[in-house]
Simulated assay, not measured.
Amino acid sequence: MTAYDCYVGSDGALGDRARSVRRTVFIEEQGVSEAEEMDDKDGVATHVLLTDGDEPVATARLRLVGEATAKVERVAVLADYRGEGLGVRVMDAVETVAGDRGATEAKLHGQTQVRGFYERLGYEAVGEEFEEAGIPHVEMVKPLD
């Protein structure tokens, strides 16, 4: 089994490498527009990046959106690395950072095609399905303990 390195940091430290994963997954694979994917929130977010050697392979970002609420965004794993538990590892890292910063709840807009993944991690859907970047999503929340 490959040992992946996990990095947590600012946009300046990790942003370009994280965006390379997001570009491949969201823009090239899923057809999300660059304007929608590469928004102005990277600079205020904390980024989590997993690498295989020097190669970025999985990422997510986190923003505190309330006194005790963290928003998990842009969770992406390159296709060749899916099924190896990297999504779980990225989410664990994001939730740890959120808890360390005082968040008691995490929320996200999960693509409905991966809703089951988030449910297995303890997230619960709230509200109705909606479209974001042309893709069906559902808002999901999880208490952090």
Rank of each mutant, 00 (worst) to 15 (best):
T2K: 11
D5T: 15
C6S: 10
Y7D: 05
G9S: 00
G12P: 06
G12Q: 15
G12D: 15
A13G: 04
L14S: 04
G15P: 09
G15H: 14
G15R: 11
G15Q: 12
D16S: 12
A18K: 06
R19S: 00
R19C: 02
S20E: 13
S20T: 14
V21S: 12
R22H: 06
R23N: 08
R23Q: 12
T24I: 13
T24H: 13
V25N: 09
V25H: 13
F26E: 05
F26C: 03
F26L: 08
E29T: 08
Q30G: 07
G31Y: 08
G31I: 07
G31C: 11
V32Y: 08
A35F: 06
A35T: 15
A35L: 05
D40W: 05
K41W: 10
D42W: 09
D42M: 11
V44Y: 04
V44A: 14
T46Y: 01
L49R: 04
L49T: 03
L50N: 03
L50F: 08
T51D: 05
D52M: 08
D52Y: 07
E55L: 09
E55G: 00
E55D: 08
P56E: 07
V57R: 02
A58M: 06
T59H: 05
R61D: 02
R63A: 01
V65L: 05
V65E: 12
G66V: 01
G66E: 04
E67F: 07
A68V: 13
T69S: 00
K71C: 04
V72N: 02
E73I: 06
V75A: 02
A76N: 10
V77K: 06
L78C: 06
D80N: 14
D80L: 10
Y81L: 02
R82A: 08
G83R: 13
E84T: 03
E84V: 00
G85F: 05
L86W: 01
G87E: 06
V88E: 12
R89K: 11
R89N: 01
R89L: 10
V90Q: 06
D92G: 00
A93L: 02
E95W: 03
D100E: 15
R101K: 11
R101M: 07
G102W: 04
T104Y: 04
T104F: 04
E105T: 15
A106V: 12
A106G: 13
K107C: 11
G110M: 01
Q111C: 09
V114L: 06
G116K: 10
Y118T: 01
R120A: 14
L121P: 01
Y123I: 05
A125N: 02
A125P: 12
G127R: 10
E131R: 11
A133T: 10
I135R: 01
P136S: 04
P136E: 02
P136L: 10
P136K: 07
V138N: 03
E139G: 05
M140P: 03
V141H: 13
V141Y: 06
K142L: 03
P143T: 12
P143C: 01
P143Y: 03
P143D: 12
P143Q: 14
L144T: 03
L144K: 02
D145T: 13
